[in-house]
Amino acid sequence: LKKVVALYDYMPMNANDLQLRKGDEYFILEESNLPWWRARDKNGQEGYIPSNYVTEAE
């Protein structure tokens, strides 16, 4: 899975979204639905995130 790091905080707009915290790492599960990607956080929560809020992890 592709790993990304959040560049900004993101508060979910609806139940399908995943909250982002700046500096945290996330795994990308699906990239087909631009600009929204399906992601999983370190706690196993899954949801959609804005792809322009993250960058690929080193």
Rank of each mutant, 00 (worst) to 15 (best):
L1N: 07
L1H: 09
K2R: 14
K2P: 05
K2W: 07
K2S: 04
K2H: 07
K3H: 06
K3L: 10
K3M: 10
V4R: 03
V4F: 08
V4K: 03
V4L: 04
V5W: 11
L7C: 08
Y8Q: 10
Y8N: 06
Y8A: 09
Y8F: 13
Y8V: 07
D9W: 03
D9S: 06
D9R: 02
Y10R: 08
Y10A: 03
Y10G: 01
M11I: 14
M11P: 06
P12N: 03
P12K: 06
M13Q: 14
M13E: 11
M13I: 14
M13R: 14
M13S: 11
M13L: 14
N14H: 14
N14A: 11
N14G: 12
N14V: 06
A15V: 12
A15I: 12
A15G: 10
N16E: 12
N16F: 12
N16R: 13
D17Y: 15
D17P: 02
D17I: 09
L18V: 03
L18T: 01
Q19W: 09
Q19N: 07
Q19T: 10
Q19R: 13
R21F: 13
K22S: 07
K22I: 07
K22L: 06
K22H: 06
G23D: 07
G23L: 03
D24M: 10
D24G: 07
D24H: 14
E25G: 05
E25M: 14
E25H: 14
E25L: 14
E25Y: 15
Y26E: 00
F27A: 05
F27M: 09
F27K: 04
F27Q: 07
I28E: 00
I28D: 00
I28F: 02
I28Y: 01
L29N: 02
L29A: 03
E30P: 03
E30V: 07
E30H: 08
E30I: 07
E30D: 15
E30K: 06
E30N: 08
E31N: 10
E31T: 11
E31L: 09
E31G: 08
E31H: 11
E31P: 07
E31M: 13
S32D: 09
S32N: 12
S32M: 08
N33W: 08
N33G: 10
N33R: 10
L34S: 15
L34P: 14
L34Y: 15
L34F: 15
L34E: 15
L34C: 14
P35C: 15
P35I: 15
P35F: 15
W36F: 15
W36T: 08
W37R: 05
W37H: 04
W37A: 06
W37S: 05
W37G: 02
R38I: 09
R38W: 15
A39G: 05
A39R: 01
A39K: 01
A39W: 02
R40D: 01
D41M: 02
D41H: 03
D41Q: 02
D41G: 05
D41A: 08
K42H: 09
K42R: 11
K42S: 10
K42L: 10
K42W: 07
N43R: 09
N43P: 02
N43L: 10
G44C: 06
Q45W: 08
Q45G: 08
Q45I: 11
E46K: 03
E46F: 04
E46Y: 05
G47I: 02
G47S: 01
Y48N: 09
Y48K: 06
Y48R: 09
I49F: 06
I49W: 01
I49K: 00
P50F: 09
P50D: 06
P50V: 04
S51L: 06
S51E: 04
S51Q: 09
S51G: 07
S51F: 15
N52A: 14
N52R: 11
N52K: 11
N52C: 15
N52Q: 10
N52D: 12
Y53T: 03
Y53I: 04
V54Q: 01
V54K: 01
V54F: 04
V54E: 01
T55N: 07
E56H: 11
A57N: 09
A57I: 15
E58A: 14
E58C: 13
E58Y: 14
E58H: 13
E58W: 13
E58L: 14
E58V: 15
